[in-house]
Amino acid sequence: MKDFISVSPLRILEKSSRKELGSGNLGVLIARAGVGKTACLIHIAFDKIFRKERLVHISLEEGPEKVMSFYDVIYRDLDQALGFTDGDEHRMMIDRNRMILAYLNQSFDVDRLRTNLMNLTENLEFRPNALIVDGLDFEKAERIIFEGLRGIAGEFQLEIWLSALSHRHVTQTNERGIPYPCHKLDDLFSLIIQLQPEPTGVFLRLLKDHDNPTISDASVRLDPNTFLALD
């Protein structure tokens, strides 16, 4: 297990001032379509699960069966790359520490999420340490949703990772250099990471690091096939 954690994309956090996102905070992963946002989020999820933390995966586009199949495919790739020895134990860890909440056909709202999380806590004693939110449309979602998510992160003492879709043709950034579509929301995010394909690999770059005003060139190169950290 140590093997995976040492090459997980979350190694980018070693370069952040607090070495973690932390409870009560939101983090976002920005990338263009097809670069691998969902895959990268699932790597983050595995990182949490394999540290025996509890995770809720929130899907706003796909049903649970598809989400599970993403996990299965990525797990198989990891197994191939790292040669896991205890598949059964992993399967048990995944089953016990992961919960998928899907919100189809615009069923998602913050109050509903809050109710669902309370149901998990009260009825299953499932207290998540982290939420992964995949498929939230940053272009359409109003600021109030992100504020609500931040509220949930504080209320339930957990960290929330989101993914945001950027476009090649939209080059807008704010004065702090945060690109579209997070440029008007960066005050709500504690960590902003960009996933960018380059000829030598896929890079994870830290664009915002909590309250740290100066970020040196903090990046991690990932294997484009496995999304594991290369150096």
């Binding site: 049903g63 649970p64 989400v67 599970m68 089953d95 016990r96 992961r98 919960m99 998928i100 909440l101 899907a102 919100y103 189809l104 056909n105 069923s107 998602f108 509903r112 669902n116 299953l124």
Partner: peptide, 10 residues
Amino acid sequence: GLITSSTEDG
């Protein structure tokens, strides 16, 4: 039981 997912739809 082990709950694996919950889907909200409408």
